[in-house]
Simulated scan of single mutants.
Amino acid sequence: MSRHYFKTTYAGKPIEVLMGFDRPLNGFFMVIDYQEDPEDDDDEGLVYSNLWERNPHPDSLIPYLEKLTALNISVPTEMLLEIEKDGEVKMGNKDVRHAMVDGTYTRTFIG
């Protein structure tokens, strides 16, 4: 499974978008999770999970791109292109953190 992480905000709160390719299920996935505030005991949970969908592991990123657009959440184009490539080669065992800092894209391989 390839996993790509991107931290941003949604509705004024910090979130993390996790997207990737699941090799055993031969499809893509996406989970958007509120980041926990250590001072706040009220965990709001998930913004979105692909498991809520009728087809939770599509063979294209299109449903997830549409969901990101509907939620007004942006992720780096470079991240999306890498995830698509992961699907093409049926990538497994890969973890990458993507970031945008002051308009500059960075990519860190973490495993």
Rank of each mutant, 00 (worst) to 15 (best):
S2D: 07
R3T: 14
R3Y: 13
H4Y: 12
H4M: 00
K7L: 02
T8G: 07
T9K: 14
Y10D: 07
G12R: 07
G12M: 04
I15Q: 04
L18V: 13
M19Y: 05
G20A: 12
F21Y: 09
D22Y: 03
D22K: 01
N26W: 08
N26M: 04
F28I: 01
F29D: 00
M30T: 05
V31M: 00
E36M: 08
E36C: 11
D37M: 05
D41N: 11
D41C: 05
D42S: 06
D43R: 01
D43M: 07
G45Y: 11
V47K: 10
Y48S: 01
S49W: 12
S49H: 11
N50E: 03
L51V: 02
L51W: 10
W52M: 03
E53K: 00
N55L: 10
N55I: 08
H57N: 04
P58G: 03
D59G: 05
L61F: 08
Y64I: 00
Y64D: 04
L65A: 02
S74Q: 13
P76Q: 06
M79Y: 14
L81S: 13
L81C: 07
E82R: 13
I83R: 10
I83E: 09
E84W: 15
G92T: 05
K94N: 07
D95W: 04
R97K: 15
R97C: 02
M100P: 00
M100L: 13
D102I: 04
G103F: 14
G103P: 10
R107I: 06
R107W: 13
T108L: 12
I110S: 08
I110V: 14
G111V: 10
G111R: 15
